[in-house]
Design a protein around this nucleic acid. Structure first.
Length: 985
RNA sequence: GCGCGAGUGGCGAAAUGGCAGACGCGCCAGACUUAGGAUCUGGUCCCGUAAGGGGUGAAGGUUCAAGUCCUUUCUCGCGCACCA
C-alpha cells in the first residue's frame, strides 16, 4: 500500500499536531501547588489559568499507567502500542470528562542486552542505552500519545537510581516485626539475652534485616555469568535467553519478601485484577496449611522435623526422606552406607534444575542406614535421602505415606518399602493404593488416640491437637515463595550502597552508606566482562572498590527489577531532588481517590502484558508494602485496577507436511504439532499418529490452499489438509510487524484505530495488515465527509509538484465541504448522533474499544448520505473520534471552527458530550414475533402501545395467522415490549 | 497431571436469556473511469429456483425462549508442575 493514493494527508496532519501538543504542553499534568500557566487549556477549563493549583481546587485525579518498557535495540513492535493506545484513549477520555489525568512514560533501561553489547564492542552501555531510548521515544511520539513528557524517567539516570538505592537502604535498615505485623526501623529490634558483644548483636541484627546476605545455593547461569531469582528461572532455564541454570552455593543479597507472603496473598482481595492473574500470584506464593512433626532418630539425639499437609496420615508413614542437602544427613548416615550416600549427594548436586525436572518421573534415592521412630506408633522406619524432596521447601524432609501420596507411592514401589492404608476412599470400589483425596481414617489408633472412622478434616484437627499437647508437633503454614535473590554479577545495574569491613577477628561485615552519599555511581571500566577469577565486572575498578580506610565496596549490582519496582511513584513527582516522591504529590496521585462512587487506592488503571505476572507485579507490591509500613506512601497496594492486554500474533501461516518419500501427508494424520527451532529458523513438526514418526512441515502461500470442510486443504489435492495458525511474532520466524512502516503507509491514527479494532483488548489476536486498510479507509471517509472534493483535487495536484518546504502550506488549499452548515439538526440526525454518543461512552467505560469504533463507523456510514451536515452534529462526532484518532480529529475540529468564524476551544479539554435518551425514542418500533420460539414475522407498532395491543397486533398479521393454522394458542409472552412469543400446540 | 481462559461465516469479530453474524477484511456484481490495487452502490452463514428448512466444537438438560445458564465431553491457548 505504500504506493497508491493517500486517503487523506495524514503525513502532514500528524506531525503538525504532535508539534503543537509538545509546544503547548497540552498534556501536562499539574501537581498540587504548581502554577498553571495563564493560557493552558486545562487551567481554562477548570478555572485555574494563571493560578496556583491548590489541592482543594484541583479536579479529581486519574492515574493511567503503561507498563515500563525496556528500550531494546529492536525498537517498538506492534504489541507495545496496543496497550499504549488503550491507555491513551482512556486518558484523553478522562481529561474531557474533567479529571486531572496523570499519564506518563519512561524507560526501564538497565539490563542485559546493552551490557552484552558492551562486552562485545567495548562501547559503554550508556551509549547504547541512550540511542535505544531515543529511538523508542521517537517511535512512541510518532503515535501521538498524550504523555506528560516532563515526567519522563530513566532508571539509569543517577537522579533516578539515587532513589532506587535509597529504597534499598530503607529495606536494609528495617526488619519485619511479627508482633506489629509490619516493617519497622532496625533500631526497634530487641536483642536476645545471649547477644552480648557488638559482634553478636551485629550478626543478630544483620540476620533480621529485610535486605540481608545469605550463603545459600542459588540459581547460577554460567552462560549469562550471573545468578538469577527463582522468578527468572523457567523450566530450569533462564527466562532471558533460555540458558541452563545450575545450583551453586554463593554469597548473595536477599530481600525478605517471604515476610510479606501473607499480606501479598490477602491483599489480592482488595484490588481489581483479573482472576487468572491473581491466581498466578496465589500459586506462586503457594500457601499451604499443615503441621510440623518431629521424628526421633533411632539411637541419636537428633530429631527430624517434617512438614506435612496431611497429619491425619501419620500412622501410614512407613519411611522418611531427607533432601540430599539436608544438614542431618552426615550425622545420621551409618558407616556402611556412607559411600553410597556420598555418591548420591554428588549425583544430586551435579544435576542442573533442568535435568532434575526432566528426570522427574524416575525416582532415585539411597538409604542412610539410620531409622526414625514414628511418634504415633513407635515403629522404626528407615530414613532415606532422595532428590524428589526439595531442600528449599518446608523443612527439607518428609514423612513418606506411600499409600496416599503419589510420589511416595512410586518411590515405595521402586524400593520395595511397605505401604499401609490409613485412608478409606468414600467409594468402596476405589483402590486405596495411591488414593490422594479425602476419605475416612482407618488403621490409625494407639493407646492414646484413635482417628478411625473420622473424616480427613476431623482427623487432621484431632491429630494436630494431640501432637501439640504431646509437644511432638504444631500447626504450621508454609509458602512456596522464597526470599528474593537481589544481587547480580553485572555492570549495568545500580551499585549497592554497601561497603565491607573487617572486624577485630578478621571477619567481614557490611555497612550501608548514608542517604547523603547517594547516588553511588558505577565506575568507568575498560572492559565489562567478569574478572578472570570470576568476580563481577565492578571488581575491575580497583580505585572504586578499594576505599582509603581499607574497606571495600560491594561489587554486585541490583537486578533490573529494582528500578521498575517504584517508577510509578517517581512519575508523581519526577523532578523532586529532595525526596523520592513528595508527600503531597504521592497522596494526591496515589491516594485513595473516589471516582464514580468507586474507591480506588493507587494507580487507577495499569495496562500491560502478562509476562510480569509473578516478577514485576509481585516485587513492586512487596516494595510498596514496605514503603507503606515505613510511612513513605499512603496506600497498601500500588495498582488498584490492572488489565492485561492480549498478545498480538503474526499473520496466519499455512503449513503443509510431506513424508520422507515426498508424498504429501494430511495434517489430520498428525498429532502434537508444534514449533521447533532449527539452525535456519523455526518450523512446525508433528508426530504421525499411526507410525509415531516425526514429520516436518514447510510453509506454503495462502493462494496454494482452499477452505474445505474440516479445515484448509491443498488446492492441488483437496484430501490433503494443511495446518493453519498464527505464531507469536519473533525475529527467528521473520513475522515481526514494525509500527514505523504502518505509520509511514497509513498514519498513526490508522495504527491506533486498527490495534483497537482487532478485537477485545484482553484477547490474543492475529495481526492482519489488510485490516489496517479497513480502518484507514474509514478515516478517509471521515475526512471526505468534512472536506470539499474539488479542493482536495487541487491539493493533490499541487502536492505532486510541491517541494518538502512548501508542502506544509498545502493543507490550506483544502476547504470544508459545502454540506456542513450551521443548521438545525433533524430528529433523525440527532438520533444517529446520540446513538453513537451512548455507545462510544458506554464502551469506553467498559474498555470495549472495538465496538466503540464500529459505532463510529455506523455513524459515518449514515452521515455520509446526508445532504446537510449540521455543524453541531459534526462537531460532536469529532469529540467522540478524538480519543481514538486525535490527529485527524484535531485537524477537522480546527477547520470546522475556523470556517464558521469560531475560535476552536482545545479539543483535549472540551467537555465530553452527553447523550439524551429522549432523542433515541422512536415513534414506532419493530417487534419480532415468534411462534414456539421461531421467528415468523416482524411487526411495527407505536412505541406507546401496551403489551395487550402488541399481542393483538401480532396475532392479527397474515403470516402469524398462517403459522397458527390448526393450532391452539396456549400462551402469549411479550417480554419488555421487545418481542412476542406465541406458544401454540 | 493440576489451575485458568477460549471455541460463532473464508478471516478479525458482534450479540442486558429475547430477530445469531452489527462493524471491518476478503470475495462477487455494478457505476464513474484511458486505467484501477482510488472512490461510490449493491450482494455475500449453509441447503433450496422459491416457499421453506438447518445453523454458534459435540451430546444431553433447564426455559415460552439458550451462542449466553447447568451437566458430560472434545479441541486449542496460557500458567504451574516431585511444593510433601
Amino acid at each position: 500500500m505504500s504506493s497508491g493514493r493517500k486517503q487523506y494527508p495524514f503525513d502532514l496532519i500528524e506531525p503538525k499536531w504532535q508539534q503543537k501538543w509538545d509546544a503547548e504542553q497540552t498534556f501536562r499534568a499539574w501537581n498540587p501547588g504548581e502554577t498553571v500557566p495563564a493560557k493552558h487549556p486545562f487551567g481554562l477549563r477548570h478555572g485555574l489559568a494563571g493560578k496556583v493549583a491548590e489541592r482543594s481546587a484541583l479536579p479529581p485525579k486519574f492515574y493511567i499507567l503503561d507498563m515500563f518498557p525496556y528500550p531494546s535495540g529492536a525498537g517498538l513492535h506492534v504489541g507495545h502500542p496496543e496497550g499504549y493506545t488503550a491507555t491513551d484513549i482512556l486518558a484523553r477520555y478522562r481529561r474531557s470528562q474533567g479529571l486531572n489525568v496523570l499519564h506518563p512514560m519512561g524507560w526501564d533501561a538497565f539490563g542485559l542486552p546493552a551490557e552484552q553489547y558492551a562486552i562485545k564492542t567495548g562501547q559503554h552501555p550508556r551509549k547504547t542505552t541512550e540511542e535505544n531510548i531515543a529511538n523508542f521515544k521517537r517511535q512512541i511520539k510518532s503515535l501521538g500519545f498524550s504523555y506528560d513528557w516532563t515526567r519522563e524517567v530513566d532508571t539509569t539516570d543517577p537522579k533516578y537510581f539515587q532513589w532506587t538505592q535509597w529504597i534499598f537502604l530503607q529495606l536494609y535498615n528495617s526488619w519485619f516485626n511479627p508482633e506489629t505485623n509490619k516493617a519497622e526501623s532496625i533500631d526497634t529490634l530487641k536483642y536476645p539475652a545471649d547477644c552480648t558483644t557488638e559482634e553478636q548483636k551485629r550478626a543478630y541484627r544483620d540476620n533480621k534485616r529485610l535486605a540481608y546476605v545469605s550463603e545459600a545455593p542459588v540459581n547460577w547461569c554460567p552462560e549469562l555469568g550471573t545468578v538469577l531469582a527463582n522468578e527468572e528461572v523457567v523450566d530450569g532455564k533462564s527466562e532471558v535467553g533460555g540458558f541452563p541454570v545450575i545450583r551453586k552455593p554463593m554469597r548473595q543479597w536477599m530481600l525478605r519478601i517471604t515476610a510479606y507472603a501473607e499480606k501479598l496473598l490477602n491483599d489480592l482481595d482488595t484490588i481489581d485484577w483479573t482472576d487468572s492473574l491473581k491466581e498466578m500470584q496465589r500459586n506462586w506464593i503457594g500457601r499451604s496449611e499443615g503441621a510440623e512433626v518431629d521424628f526421633q532418630v533411632d539411637g541419636h539425639a537428633a530429631k527430624i522435623r517434617v512438614f506435612t499437609t496431611r497429619p491425619d496420615t501419620l500412622f501410614g508413614a512407613t519411611y522418611m526422606v531427607l533432601s540430599p542437602e539436608h544438614k542431618l544427613v552426615g550425622e545420621i548416615t551409618t558407616s556402611a552406607q556412607a559411600a553410597a550416600v556420598k555418591e548420591y549427594q554428588r549425583f544430586a548436586t551435579t544435576k542442573s534444575d533442568l535435568e532434575r525436572t526432566e528426570l522427574a518421573k524416575d525416582k532415585t534415592g539411597v538409604w542412610t542406614g539410620a531409622n526414625a521412630i514414628n511418634p504415633v506408633n513407635g515403629e522404626k522406619i528407615p530414613i532415606w535421602i532422595a532428590d524428589y524432596v526439595l531442600s528449599t521447601y518446608g523443612t527439607g524432609a518428609i514423612m513418606a505415606v506411600p499409600a496416599h501420596d503419589e510420589r511416595d507411592f512410586e518411590f515405595a514401589k521402586k524400593f520395595n518399602l511397605p505401604i499401609v492404608q490409613v485412608v478409606q476412599p468414600p467409594d468402596v470400589k476405589t483402590d486405596w493404593r495411591g488414593f490422594l483425596d479425602e476419605g475416612t481414617a482407618v488403621n490409625s489408633s494407639n493407646a492414646d488416640i484413635a482417628l478411625n472412622g473420622l473424616s480427613t478434616k476431623e482427623a487432621k484437627r484431632k491429630i494436630s491437637e494431640w501432637l501439640d499437647a504431646k509437644g511432638l508437633g504444631k500447626k504450621t503454614i508454609n509458602y512456596k515463595l522464597r526470599d528474593w535473590l537481589f544481587s547480580r554479577q553485572r555492570y549495568w545495574g545500580e551499585p549497592f550502597p554497601i561497603i565491607w569491613k573487617k572486624d577485630a577477628s578478621g571477619n567481614l561485615y557490611h555497612e550501608a552508606l548514608t542517604a547523603s552519599e547517594l547516588p553511588l555511581r558505577p565506575p568507568q571500566l575498560e572492559e565489562y566482562k567478569p574478572t578472570s577469577d570470576g568476580q563481577p565486572p565492578l571488581a575491575r575498578a580497583k580505585d572504586w572498590v578499594n576505599l582509603p580506610d581499607g574497606s571495600i565496596r560491594e561489587t554486585n549490582t541490583m537486578p533490573q527489577w529494582g528500578g521498575s519496582c517504584w517508577y510509578y511513584l517517581r512519575y508523581a513527582d519526577a523532578l523532586n531532588g529532595k525526596v523520592f516522591v513528595g508527600p503531597d504529590a504521592e497522596s494526591y496521585w496515589m491516594g485513595t481517590g473516589k471516582f464514580q462512587g468507586e474507591v480506588k487506592p493507587g494507580v487507577d488503571l495499569y495496562v500491560g502484558g502478562t509476562e510480569h505476572a509473578v516478577l514485576h507485579l509481585l516485587y513492586a507490591r512487596f516494595w510498596h508494602k514496605v514503603l507503606f509500613d515505613l510511612g513513605h506512601v499512603t496506600t497498601a497496594e500500588p495498582f488498584y485496577k490492572l488489565v492485561n492486554q492480549g498478545l498480538i500474533l503474526g499473520e496466519m501461516e499455512f503449513t503443509a507436511f510431506n513424508y520422507d518419500d515426498g508424498n504429501p501427508c494430511s495434517s489430520n494424520e498428525l498429532k502434537n504439532v508444534e514449533e521447533e527451532a532449527t539452525a535456519s529458523g523455526k518450523r512446525l513438526v508433528g508426530v504421525h499418529k499411526a507410525s509415531g514418526i516425526k514429520i516436518a512441515g514447510r510453509r506454503i502461500a495462502e493462494n496454494e490452499v482452499e477452505k474445505v470442510t474440516g479445515g484448509f486443504a491443498l488446492k492441488t489435492d483437496k484430501s490433503i489438509l494443511v495446518d493453519a495458525r498464527s505464531f507469536k511474532m519473533s525475529k527467528a520466524r521473520g513475522n515481526v510487524v514494525n509500527p514505523d512502516e504502518i505509520v509511514n503507509d497509513f498514519g498513526a491514527d490508522s495504527l491506533r484505530l486498527y490495534e483497537m479494532f482487532m478485537g477485545p483488548l484482553q484477547e490474543t489476536k492475529p495481526w492482519n495488515t489488510e485490516g489496517v486498510e479497513g480502518v484507514y479507509r474509514f478515516l478517509g471517509r471521515v475526512w471526505r465527509m468534512f472536506v470539499d472534493d474539488g479542493s482536495e483535487t487541487a491539493y493533490e495536484q499541487a502536492e505532486a509538484v510541491a517541494t518538502p518546504e512548501t508542502r506544509g502550506e498545502l493543507l490550506d488549499l483544502i476547504i470544508l465541504d459545502g454540506g456542513i452548515l450551521e443548521a438545525e439538526p433533524t430528529k433523525e440526525q440527532l438520533k444517529v448522533l446520540h446513538t453513537c454518543i451512548k455507545k462510544v461512552t458506554e464502551d469506553l467505560e467498559g474498555m470495549r474499544f472495538n465496538t466503540a469504533i464500529s459505532a463510529m463507523m455506523v455513524f459515518s456510514n449514515e452521515a455520509s448520505t446526508w445532504q446537510t451536515k449540521p455543524f453541531s452534529v459534526m462537531k460532536t462526532f469529532l469529540q467522540l473520534l478524538a480519543p481514538f484518532a486525535p490527529h485527524l480529529a484535531e485537524e477537522l475540529w480546527s477547520r470546522l471552527h475556523s470556517t464558521f468564524g469560531h475560535v476552536a476551544p482545545s479539543l483535549t479539554y472540551a467537555v465530553w458530550p452527553k447523550f439524551d435518551p429522549a432523542l433515541l425514542v422512536e415513534d414506532e418500533v419493530e417487534i419480532p414475533v415468534q411462534v414456539n420460539g421461531k421467528l415468523r414475522d416482524v411487526i411495527k407498532v407505536p412505541t406507546a402501545a401496551t403489551e395487550a395491543e402488541i399481542e393483538a397486533f401480532a396475532l392479527a398479521t397474515e403470516k402469524i395467522k398462517a403459522a397458527l393454522e390448526g393450532k391452539t394458542v396456549k400462551k402469549v409472552i411479550v417480554p419488555k415490549k421487545k418481542l412476542v412469543n406465541i406458544v401454540a400446540v
